[in-house]
Amino acid sequence: MGKVQARAVFGALRLTAAIVCTVALVHRLLWGLSSHTVAGENFFAYLTVESNCALVVVLVLGAVLAFTRVADPRWFSIALSLVLTWTITAGLAFALIVWQAGIRGIRVDVPWSDQVLHFFLPACTAIAWALTPGHRGVSWWIVPTSLLFPLVWGGVTMWRGPLVGWYPYYFLDPRQVSGPPEFLLTSGVALAIFALVACALVLLSRMPQPARRSIPPPA
Rank of each mutant, 00 (worst) to 15 (best):
Val60Thr: 04
Ser34Val: 07
Pro133Asp: 04
His36Gln: 14
Cys124Ser: 15
Gln176Arg: 12
Pro181Tyr: 04
Leu55Ser: 11
Pro217Ala: 15
Pro122Tyr: 03
Val143Ser: 03
Val177Pro: 02
Val189Cys: 09
Ala200Lys: 07
Leu121Glu: 02
Met1Glu: 03
Glu50His: 06
Gly188Phe: 03
Leu25Thr: 12
Pro210Leu: 05
Ser35Lys: 14
Ser77His: 08
Glu41Cys: 02
Val9Gln: 09
Val4His: 13
Gly179Leu: 10
Glu182Tyr: 06
Ser35Leu: 15
Phe43Lys: 01
Val60Arg: 02
Asn42Thr: 01
Ser113Gln: 08
Arg175Ile: 00
Arg74Tyr: 12
Gly2Phe: 13
Asp72Val: 05
Leu147Gly: 03
Thr22Trp: 12
Phe44Met: 10
Ala128Cys: 11
Ile88Tyr: 11
Ala71Glu: 14
Gln115Trp: 05
Pro218Asp: 14
Val138Tyr: 11
Gly154Leu: 12
Val64Arg: 08
Glu182Thr: 11
Asn52His: 14
Tyr167Thr: 01
Pro133Leu: 04
Ala123Gly: 03
Ala63Thr: 06
Phe76Gln: 03
Trp166Thr: 09
Phe67Cys: 05
Leu131Trp: 14
Gly154Tyr: 06
Val64Trp: 10
Gln5Tyr: 13
Val26Phe: 05
Thr89Asn: 13
Val116Arg: 00
Ala45Ile: 01
Trp140Gly: 08
Ala63Asn: 04
Val20His: 10
Leu65Ser: 08
Val189Asp: 10
Phe183Val: 06
Asp72Tyr: 09
Ser77Asp: 08
Thr16Trp: 09
Phe194Arg: 00
Leu47Gln: 13
Ala24Val: 11
Met207Thr: 12
Leu196Tyr: 09
Gly105Glu: 09
Cys124Leu: 14
Leu203Thr: 14
Gln100Met: 12
Ile127Phe: 13
Arg104Cys: 08
Ile106Pro: 00
Val4Gly: 10
Phe76Arg: 02
Ala93Trp: 01
Leu96His: 03
Gln176Ile: 00
Val98Met: 12
Gln176Asn: 11
Gly134Thr: 01
Ser113Gly: 07
Ser178Ile: 04
Arg7Leu: 10
Ile193Leu: 11
Ala101Ser: 15
Ile78Tyr: 06
Val116Gly: 00
Val143Arg: 08
Ala198Ser: 12
Ser35Glu: 15
Val57Met: 10
Pro218Arg: 15
Pro73Ala: 07
Leu55Pro: 04
Val83Asp: 03
Val110Trp: 01
Tyr170Ile: 07
Pro144Ala: 04
Arg160Phe: 12
Leu25Gln: 10
Ala71Asn: 06
Val116Leu: 03
Gly137Tyr: 00
Ala66Tyr: 07
Arg69Tyr: 05
Leu151Gly: 03
Tyr170Asp: 15
Arg136Val: 06
Thr68Gly: 02
Ala200Thr: 10
Val83Lys: 01
Val164Tyr: 10
Pro122Ser: 06
Ser187Met: 12
Val138Thr: 11
Val26Gly: 02
Val70Gln: 15
Val143Phe: 07
Ala71Gly: 03
Ala39Asp: 13
